[in-house]
Design a protein around this nucleic acid. Structure first.
Lengths: 231, 231
DNA sequence: GTCCTCACATACATGCATGTACGTATCTTA
DNA sequence: TAAGATACGTACATGCATGTATGTGAGGAC
């Protein structure tokens, strides 16, 4: 967002059709974002069918009129909210993962960053929509599955790279391991929502377990434990 | 159920007011079970709000009339279906866990048995209801939370016992570990639904990770994975 | 300043699922 | 067999949320 404030007054010299600053568009964007965030919270809390647009709009400080002015219908709003959450996820989680070179480090960073991401109310949007629409021929189902498939693809690549590098042991098919890894992260992140200090370490431990890695090597909390060398 | 079949024909001699076999109650029970199973599948697939009673009854071979004759309203049906699932879980999973003496063995048995339990359509009932009602003051929410708290209590006890026995390493608070363990099992079980051969081992691995145990010690798949005609 | 457009609010219409009242057939008791 | 109860089907009423049409006031172009 390369905006500064309002009150443009760019009354300088030669200015072609340069809108000094589109106050209209800015206003529109603001309310749109407020509606999207409210919708995302509502979806995460109540799911799609239980989501009442009156409450969504009210919680954002508007009425249903504003909502129907920006979005075609309820489904359109849900899709936009989902996209908004996925974008936020990419910014906050994907960005960190990209900076890791080692595949195992990337997977564990993803687990921890996702846990932090889940500390908000927005976190259960994806799983809620998936539970409600999975297996149906519905645009929302398709969008959610697309997101999951992208994530799965990334994880499959990391697991494969880790196995080739020898840092992830052989075992079940790579795809199944990746699915288990994702499921473990999601499940533990939701189960531990709010347990702020310990959540990241435990999610990483569960993720490590799905990958076949010793979880005690992951975080300092377990470092003090007696070295239980396996047979 | 101590029933045999229908067609009694107990036309022997002296028969006092012995109802040959309560055909009415039996009939009622049959349709009740059919409706409960249908409702459980529906809840697992669509959630509560998306659950249409017309479909529930139809899928069981009845109409909404039969449903409203047996259950007070939709909420009553959902509560009964939830109870039905929990009872089934106790029979199929809890029974096996009780027979384990070692706490770690019990926890891993629970993980594997739960995975097998989840291979049906009934499995997502609990998490679906929890997602839809958590944080609300609703009877369904209370019932679901009661079930989760019972499970959590059991797992907390096992983790404590395991730590005292030295088979589970020290680390985060016991309760957090138990929550992570349960979340890992749920998440992986759902994510791997259908991957019949490998699911149990991977769920056990994720659960082991949450507990701080080396997952490779858990299942033979990782012990000897030499072949693997990976493409 | 006039006109137009856009952002948003308000009021109305529609649909759909729930819940209820009532009708019918089967079983039970005498 | 007759009378009552019970299991279930059918038809109607209600509520609630969505979607649409219409109104109002604040920008922006001239």
């Amino acid at each position: 967002m390369h905006v500064c404030e309002d009150g443009p007054s760019r009354s300088g010299g030669g200015d072609p059709p340069s809108p000094r600053r589109s106050t209209q568009a800015e206003r529109r964007e603001r309310t749109r974002n407020a509606l999207l965030e409210s919708a995302a919270r509502g979806l995460s809390r109540y799911g799609y069918s239980n989501l009442v647009l009156e409450q969504v709009a009210r919680q954002a400080g508007y009425t249903r009129g504003a909502l129907y002015h920006q979005f075609k219908d309820k489904q359109d709003l849900a899709l936009a909210a989902l996209q908004w959450v996925l974008d936020t996820w990419d910014q906050e989680v994907g960005r960190q993962v990209e900076q890791e070179s080692d595949p195992v480090a990337a997977l564990l960073t993803l687990a921890r960053a996702h846990t932090v991401f889940c500390r908000r109310d927005i976190a259960r949007v994806a799983i809620a929509l998936r539970l409600e629409f999975s297996g149906q021929d519905h645009p929302i189902a398709h969008e959610v599955e697309k997101g999951y498939q992208a994530l799965t693809g990334t994880c499959v690549d990391f697991v494969e790279a880790g196995r080739e590098a020898g840092s992830i042991p052989d075992g079940p098919p790579v795809r199944d391991v990746a699915l288990a890894y994702i499921g473990a992260i999601e499940g533990t992140s939701i189960a531990l929502a709010g347990q702020v200090p310990q959540d990241a370490a435990l999610v990483a431990a569960a993720a490590a377990g799905a990958l076949g890695l010793d979880p005690r090597a992951m975080y300092p909390s377990y470092a003090a434990a007696p070295k239980e060398t396996h047979s």
